[in-house]
Design a protein around this nucleic acid. Structure first.
Lengths: 275, 275
DNA sequence: ATAATAGTGTCTATCAGACATTATCTG
DNA sequence: CAGATAATGTCTGATAGACACTATTAT
C-alpha cells in the first residue's frame, strides 16, 4: 500500500530519507501575547508590556513574546513565554490572528502569531531576558483613540483611530487604522495586534464566557457587570445583564461587600459550568 | 532622538546594518485554503481539493496552498495561490487559524496559516504544478462525521467525529477529534483545518453576511435560504429567515423561477450594502 | 384540478432596553 | 436620617419559532 513510487522512483520512506528542505528563505515565527487583566475595582483594563532592551525599537514598550520552537505548538510557545515572564500557567489563552506584513520587523522576515491571554489577578512583574523592564499599563480603547499609559513609568502612548473601508468578496468591512499622536510609541506593529485582540475579545465576551477569566473564582454580580462594561466600553442595564448572566452563575451562599465603597452587601457567585 | 545606543554601543542604524539572523531553526510557512462553493441548487457544499503528485501523501487529496514569500502577506499568498490554481480573484478570503503542531508535515517543520474562501460559482479546475489533479468534492459535516466525496473521481473520505473536552483558563471547551473510517484519506492534518474553517463559517454566517458570497449577484430568497440551511446543516423557518434577512437585501424588480423545479416564480433580490 | 413552491399574516415565548421600587449598608 | 448601592419587579418593543393561509406556477 505504501509502495507507491513517485516520478523519481522513490517510495515514501525513501523520499523522506533523502528529503532536503529547499534553500528558499524561511521566516522566523514568533508569538506575541496581549495579556489582559483588570484593576482593583474593575474600572480599567490593564495590559502587560515589556520595555525593549535592544534595537530595534530599543526603549520602546512592546508585547511580550518569543520564538516558536520546533518541538512545540504556537499555543505552547505562547504559554511558555507567559510562564517564563510572569510565572502564570493555566490562564486563558486564545489565538487571535497571524501577522505577516513584509517589513513589520526591520531586522528580518518575522511572522507572528498573536494570542490573547486573560487573568483574574495582576501579578508583580519585572523585566527578564531581553526586557529592560515590564509593567502593567492602563488601556483605554474607544472609537476615536487607543491610549496606553502608566503613571508609574511616566509613559503615555496615544494613537488616533480612523475607520478605513475595504472589500472582501462582495462584503464591505471596516478597519481601524492607527496614527501615532504621542511622543512615546509601541514597538513594531504591536498597536495593530492590540486592536485586533481587543476587537476579538469584545466580539466574544457577549456570546462566550471570557469574562469569568477576568474575575476571581468567586465574585459579585456588580463586579462581573463592571468587567463587561469596562471591556465593552459601554454601560449595561442591571436587570438585562443579570437575566443574561443568570444561567451561567450559581450563588455560593456567602455575602460580602463589592469592591466599591459604601452600599449594601452583595451575594457572592461562582461560575457554573455547562452540564 | 534615534541616537540611542545599545549595550554594544550601536545606534539603531548601525545595529540593523550588522544584524545577522541567528542560526536557530526556522519553519517553512505556508497557507492552505479551504475553498467553498455550492452545487447548482444549493443543497450541497462543495470544496476544492487537489491530488498530490509527490510524497508525502502522494495520491492523497489535499487543500490547495503554498509557501508564503518574503515580499507578501499571508493573505496575499493565499489569494495568489487561489488565482494561480483557479483563475479567481477578488473572492472572499478570511484567515481562520494557524496550525503548528510538530510533525504535522513529515518532511520538515511547516507552520500553515489556514484561510477560508467563498465563491458563488464553481469553476472548472484542473491539476497544475505539483498537483496531479484537482476537483470539487461534496462535503457533508454533521455532529457525528465529516464526509468528503466525489463520484466522478471515485473517492469517498469519511472521518468519524468525537467530542473532546478541554479547559482554557476556567472555561470548558469542546473540540471534535476526527478518526479516519474510509480507505481514502486527506493529506497532512487537512481534516482538522477543514473542521476549524467550517466551525468558523457556521459561527459567522449567522451574524455576518458571508452567505452573499455563495450566491450569484442576484438571487431569490428561497435560494439564499437554501444556502443558510446547507451551511448550517439545519432547516430554518421561512418567515423568520425572511424577517432576519430583509434589511440586508433589496428587490431588483425582476422575477424568475428558483433553481428548483416547479412552483411559483420568485422575486429577485440583490445584496444591500450598509449605509 | 393538483401538487409544489412563493409569499405573507399572526400568535406566542423570550429577551433586551428602560425605568421604578424596595432592601440594606455606611456614615 | 441621607446617600449610596443591591436586588428585583414590570412594562414595552423587537424578534425567533411555529403554524396557517393565500398566490402562482408546472404538469
Amino acid at each position: 500500500m505504501k509502495e507507491i513510487r513517485n516520478k523519481d522512483g522513490l517510495t515514501e520512506k525513501e523520499f523522506l530519507a533523502q528529503y532536503k528542505p529547499g534553500d528558499y528563505k524561511r521566516p522566523s515565527v514568533t508569538t506575541d501575547v496581549l495579556m489582559i487583566g483588570m484593576n482593583e475595582n474593575y474600572t480599567k483594563m490593564k495590559i502587560l508590556l515589556i520595555k525593549r532592551g535592544n534595537h530595534p525599537f530599543m526603549g520602546c514598550w512592546a508585547l511580550p513574546g518569543g520564538f516558536v520552537n520546533e518541538n512545540e505548538t504556537a499555543h505552547q510557545a505562547a504559554a511558555r513565554e507567559l510562564e517564563e515572564e510572569t510565572g502564570l500557567s493555566g490562564v486563558y489563552l486564545d489565538q487571535v490572528y497571524t501577522f505577516s506584513k513584509p517589513g513589520r520587523d526591520p531586522r528580518t522576515w518575522v511572522i507572528t502569531i498573536a494570542y490573547l491571554a486573560l487573568i483574574s489577578e495582576l501579578q508583580e512583574v519585572k523585566g527578564l531576558d531581553d526586557a529592560e523592564d515590564a509593567a502593567w499599563f492602563d488601556l483605554k480603547f474607544t472609537e476615536e483613540e487607543i491610549k496606553i499609559s502608566s503613571e508609574e513609568k511616566a509613559v503615555n502612548i496615544v494613537y488616533n483611530l480612523k475607520k478605513e473601508v475595504f472589500y472582501n468578496g462582495v462584503l464591505r468591512y471596516e478597519n481601524y487604522i492607527p496614527t501615532l499622536k504621542s511622543q512615546d510609541a509601541l514597538a513594531f506593529d504591536h498597536v495593530e495586534i492590540i486592536i485586533e485582540a481587543l476587537k476579538k475579545l469584545r466580539r466574544q465576551i457577549k456570546y462566550s464566557s471570557e469574562a469569568f477569566c477576568l474575575v476571581d473564582e468567586t465574585f459579585t454580580l456588580p463586579e462581573l457587570q463592571a468587567v463587561y462594561e469596562t471591556v465593552l466600553g459601554q454601560k449595561l442595564y442591571k436587570k438585562s445583564f443579570r437575566d443574561m448572566i443568570s444561567e451561567h452563575v450559581v450563588e455560593t451562599g456567602e455575602e460580602r461587600s463589592s469592591r466599591t465603597p459604601n452600599g449594601r452587601r452583595c451575594k457572592e457567585y461562582r461560575f457554573k459550568r455547562e452540564e
